[in-house]
């Protein structure tokens, strides 16, 4: 079973949630799932854009109490 690692990037501005996700994906193994927590509404758009461009898998994306929970699976 793949690991699920949580990256809490809420209330941080620099380098920002997507950059934290990219760094986290570099550490992960193929098949791992990472859950990004972000209070930046822009993450709901820019994370899927990057995931699609690179070829990773979007598992889920939902907003709970003002925080975006975005799960992605490393595919390569």
């Amino acid at each position: 079973m793949s690991d699920v690692r949580v990256i809490d990037a809420c209330n941080t501005f620099c380098p920002g949630p997507l950059m934290e996700l990219i760094a986290g994906m570099k550490q992960a193994e193929v098949g791992d799932v990472i859950e990004l927590l972000s209070s930046d509404a822009g993450s709901a758009a820019d994370v899927p854009e990057w995931i699609n461009k690179v070829g990773h898998e979007m598992v889920s994306s939902e907003q709970v109490d003002g925080v975006w929970h975005i799960k992605v699976r490393k595919m390569k």
Binding site: F13, G16, I22, D46
Partner: peptide, 9 residues
């Protein structure tokens, strides 16, 4: 690396 020219919007 991300979709704009710097991490800070």
């Amino acid at each position: 690396p991300i979709g704009r020219t710097h991490g800070l919007e």
